[in-house]
Computed example of a mutant assay.
Amino acid sequence: MNKTKGLTFGILAAFIYGFTPILGKLTYLEGSNAISLTFYRNFLSIPLLFVVLKYNNIPIAINKTETKKLAILGAMGSTLTALTLYGAYNYISVGMTTTIHYIYPVLVTIACILIFKEKISKEKTIALILSTIGVMMFFEGDFSIIGVSLALISGIVYAVHILFIDKSGLNAMYPFKITFYAAIFSSLYLFIFGVASNNLVFKMSLTGWFFTFLVAFFVSFLANTFIPIGVKNVGPTVTSIVGMFEPITSIILGMLFLNEPVTRRNVLACILILMGVLIVTLAKGKRADIKSK
């Protein structure tokens, strides 16, 4: 394991996940929608990932067991999480959706302790508490059972997604190979869903396609590959905690590029999350910490 490498890639993934919604909003202005963006961000990344595998002489073939695992993985993070998260935005605010979705680090930690009988250091526990309180401060007052349910499902599915990478043994596979097949399966699932629901857009402006490609490059090519690297090197718990850096990125960039307001409450929330991430970053590795293998 390489803790510095794991933390770096985990934070980079969170940063990318945080700023790409801005690009996503720009694609909507050019004729796209949530389903189409999620489909194309996976589909357009496949050629890029294929080139990386060929350039590094990584065998493309996978066996039946790996195929099943990758098919399951593709159905979770890039498909079900995205669909339920975007679906929640139609019923409740982004702030409430984000708050509920970020229950996943807590779920990952609980699963590691109760199901996998692993131990969590005091530093990680404190970091998790601070970061969770910070995220909860983004909570807003509107309410919808459907919206809350969808946001909760998105958090549960993403927690399973992170744990599955670690516990299924997929983290031993070359990271870009994991992302390559996850993108293929996710593209297949989303194409079927998009066509069946009549939500898949085939015509966009040139600008829309440009922003869509950027989302594909940053999210499906880079960030989705960085997550397995983070899980492999620091484990699912720490990867989940540093993932809370995402809403901070969204708030700062939303303020800079979309003129979105920032309240004192949001600033305090960001400080608590940063404190949690900082504690995890500075904490010394211990035998009692979550292991990624």
Rank of each mutant, 00 (worst) to 15 (best):
L49A: 11
S205M: 11
K69T: 03
E66G: 10
N56W: 00
F213W: 05
G147P: 02
I227D: 03
F164S: 07
N199V: 00
V215G: 07
A183R: 03
I271W: 01
R287K: 14
Y40W: 14
S186N: 05
K69F: 00
L48E: 02
L150G: 05
I273T: 06
L150E: 01
I145Y: 15
F15H: 02
V52H: 00
T109H: 02
K117Q: 09
H161V: 05
L258D: 10
P47Q: 04
S292F: 04
A14D: 05
L268S: 13
S32K: 10
R41F: 07
F116M: 05
K69C: 03
E66T: 14
L278G: 08
A13F: 07
F164Y: 15
F138Y: 15
V242K: 08
T132V: 08
I126Y: 08
L70R: 11
Y189S: 06
L274Q: 07
G24K: 09
P261F: 01
I110V: 14
G147E: 04
L268Y: 15
V238A: 11
I133Y: 01
L258V: 11
K291G: 11
A82Y: 07
L274T: 12
A172F: 01
R41P: 09
Y89K: 07
F211L: 04
S45G: 12
T125W: 04
L200H: 11
I279M: 04
E118Y: 02
F191I: 13
N171P: 00
L222W: 05
K291C: 05
F9G: 10
E246A: 13
K291I: 11
I162T: 12
S250K: 05
I46C: 00
Y181P: 15
A127P: 03
K117R: 15
I241H: 07
V267N: 06
A216W: 10
P47N: 03
M204P: 13
F138V: 12
G285S: 13
F138C: 04
L37V: 13
I133R: 04
E260A: 14
L26F: 06
I178A: 09
L70M: 10
F193H: 06
A13N: 12
K117D: 02
F164P: 11
T97G: 10
F50V: 12
M173P: 14
R265L: 12
N63M: 05
F180Y: 14
N233W: 02
Y189N: 10
I271C: 04
S131M: 07
T249Y: 01
S144M: 07
A159D: 02
G194A: 10
I145T: 15
K3A: 08
L268H: 10
L268N: 08
A13E: 03
L130T: 06
L44E: 04
E140C: 08
I162E: 01
V238H: 01
D289L: 02
I273V: 15
N199R: 13
L49F: 10
L170V: 12
K124S: 13
N171D: 01
T79D: 01
E123I: 02
L256A: 14
N233K: 07
A223V: 11
S292E: 11
T67S: 06
G254S: 13
S36L: 03
A183G: 06
I290N: 09
A127I: 09
I279H: 03
L274Y: 01
A283R: 11
S292G: 14
R287T: 15
K291N: 11
I35Y: 10
T179E: 00
N56D: 12
N198H: 14
G6I: 10
K177D: 04
